[in-house]
Simulated scan of single mutants.
Amino acid sequence: MPKNKGKGGKNRKRGKNEADDEKRELVFKEDGQEYAQVARMLGNGRCEAQCIDGTMRLCHIRGKMHKKVWIAAGDIVLVGLRDYQDDKADVILKYMNDEARLLKAYGEIPDHVRLNEGVVDEDDAAAHDDYIQFQDEDIDKI
Rank of each mutant, 00 (worst) to 15 (best):
42 L>Y: 05
22 E>V: 02
43 G>W: 06
3 K>Y: 14
118 G>S: 08
53 D>N: 08
97 N>K: 07
80 G>L: 09
44 N>W: 02
109 I>P: 02
58 L>W: 04
29 K>H: 01
138 D>F: 06
17 N>H: 04
67 K>R: 15
126 A>R: 15
93 L>N: 09
141 K>F: 07
18 E>I: 11
7 K>S: 10
121 D>C: 11
53 D>G: 03
74 G>V: 02
101 R>F: 01
25 E>K: 08
108 E>K: 10
78 L>K: 13
128 H>E: 15
5 K>G: 13
76 I>G: 01
20 D>H: 03
2 P>G: 14
22 E>D: 06
112 H>M: 05
95 Y>N: 05
83 D>K: 09
140 D>W: 00
90 D>F: 14
87 D>C: 03
20 D>A: 08
96 M>K: 10
89 A>E: 01
141 K>A: 11
25 E>S: 09
113 V>Y: 15
8 G>D: 13
50 Q>A: 10
22 E>H: 07
14 R>S: 15
58 L>S: 11
130 D>C: 11
104 K>T: 02
116 N>S: 06
83 D>G: 05
68 K>V: 07
123 D>F: 12
134 F>D: 06
110 P>G: 09
131 Y>I: 09
64 K>T: 13
57 R>V: 00
61 I>T: 12
59 C>E: 06
77 V>C: 10
51 C>K: 00
14 R>N: 14
72 A>Q: 13
128 H>N: 11
103 L>M: 06
23 K>Q: 07
7 K>F: 11
4 N>H: 12
30 E>G: 14
4 N>K: 15
45 G>S: 14
42 L>I: 10
142 I>H: 04
115 L>I: 06
13 K>A: 10
102 L>Q: 15
139 I>G: 02
109 I>N: 03
127 A>L: 13
40 R>M: 11
94 K>C: 08
56 M>F: 08
132 I>R: 14
114 R>F: 00
98 D>E: 15
66 H>P: 01
29 K>T: 07
59 C>I: 04
97 N>Y: 02
141 K>Y: 03
134 F>K: 12
97 N>A: 13
106 Y>Q: 08
91 V>L: 14
41 M>V: 10
124 D>A: 12
139 I>N: 04
7 K>N: 12
59 C>A: 11
97 N>R: 08
38 V>G: 09
107 G>H: 07
66 H>M: 10
77 V>W: 00
38 V>P: 04
98 D>H: 10
19 A>F: 09
25 E>T: 10
70 W>M: 05
121 D>Q: 12
58 L>C: 10
78 L>Q: 09
17 N>P: 00
30 E>I: 01
41 M>S: 07
103 L>D: 01
132 I>V: 14
133 Q>T: 12
67 K>Q: 09
99 E>S: 05
84 Y>H: 10
58 L>F: 13
8 G>F: 13
31 D>P: 02
94 K>T: 05
19 A>P: 00
32 G>H: 06
38 V>C: 09
84 Y>S: 11
18 E>C: 03
44 N>P: 02
68 K>S: 06
